[in-house]
Simulated scan of single mutants.
Amino acid sequence: MINVNLSVLNPLEQQIHAKLYDYSRQNSNIRISEAAELCDCSVSKISKFVKKLGFENYKQYLDFLYEREVPSEDYSDELTRISKFIDNFDEKKVDELISLIESREKIILFGYGPSLICAQYFEYRLRTITNKVIFAVTDEISISSMSDESTLLILLTVTGSFRTFENIYNAAKSKSCQVAMVVEEYNTELFKQCDHIFWLSKYNQPDDLLPYEKSRTVFFIFLEEVIQKLMRKNKAAIE
């Protein structure tokens, strides 16, 4: 990732760049020693200049100068995974979750560990765009005491393997509460722990990561799309 910023250069450095740019239009290559001589400065000054400009080294700067493709480093596994998820994003899942949200007056969000933090964030987001009662709860007892027939309980989990939701589900169902689960990775054990499952991705995170070590990026992408679509619907209704 390269961030080229000409505005950070002082007048002398801007002159160096201008000289090298003009020279490159007529010459096929410029050795760093040649660049130093042309700009009447040291090789060290050229090296510092290109790094200040945003490049890792002089060769990368030359690639930029000659408009050659700058070799890119390999993406991290997480970036590759997220890119695949976005390319295969299923908008129907967004519409289905919105339908569930709109069908109930009260929404409870819950997750364990980092997923709870995601639930708390989306509690705030949903409160700003709906007139519904929205809660992100931190314990199982609260879920049982707050649930009723007008409630949609949304459970967030990456793998569903950190802790079972079975007791939560049974307690919620005893209050006629609808239970939906937003889960990233496919896990057949979750069938008996909710009424409606949204499996978000077929691209799993590395198996050597513990559940709390896995990212929640997919949650934020999916649920933010839900928020954005709800916002658009609200604006259209007003207009």
Rank of each mutant, 00 (worst) to 15 (best):
S7G: 10
N10S: 13
Q15S: 14
Q15P: 01
I16Q: 04
H17F: 14
Y21V: 10
Y23H: 15
S24D: 01
N27M: 04
N29R: 07
I30G: 06
I30Y: 05
R31C: 05
S33A: 14
E34Q: 12
A36T: 01
E37I: 07
E37Q: 12
C41G: 07
S42P: 04
S44H: 02
I46G: 02
K52Q: 09
L53Y: 00
L53S: 01
E56K: 10
Q60A: 14
L62E: 06
L62H: 02
F64C: 08
L65C: 12
Y66V: 12
E69I: 14
V70A: 06
S72I: 14
S72D: 04
D74Q: 13
S76H: 07
D77N: 11
D77W: 02
T80C: 12
R81P: 11
R81A: 13
I82Q: 05
I82A: 06
S83G: 13
F85E: 05
F85N: 05
I86W: 02
E91Q: 09
K93Y: 01
K93H: 00
V94P: 01
E96K: 15
L97R: 01
S99F: 06
I101P: 00
E105I: 00
E105G: 15
L109K: 07
F110Y: 14
Y112N: 11
Y112T: 08
S115R: 02
L116S: 14
C118F: 06
C118L: 11
A119R: 05
A119F: 05
Q120R: 13
F122C: 12
E123P: 03
E123K: 11
R125T: 05
L126G: 03
R127V: 02
I129G: 02
T130Y: 02
K132C: 09
V133Q: 12
V133H: 05
D139K: 04
D139P: 04
E140R: 06
I143V: 15
M146E: 03
M146S: 08
S147W: 05
S147Y: 05
D148C: 10
T151P: 11
I154E: 03
I154Q: 06
L155P: 03
L156C: 09
L156Y: 09
T157E: 01
V158A: 12
S161L: 14
F162I: 13
T164M: 08
E166T: 08
N167Q: 13
Y169I: 08
N170G: 00
N170T: 08
A171C: 10
S174R: 08
S174G: 03
Q178H: 09
A180D: 00
V182E: 01
V183A: 15
Y186G: 03
T188A: 12
T188E: 09
K192P: 01
K192V: 06
C194Y: 00
L200V: 03
L200K: 00
Y203H: 09
N204M: 09
N204T: 12
Q205R: 07
Q205C: 10
D207S: 15
Y212E: 11
Y212R: 13
E213M: 13
S215T: 14
T217L: 13
F219G: 06
I221K: 00
I221L: 13
E224Q: 12
Q228W: 03
A236L: 15
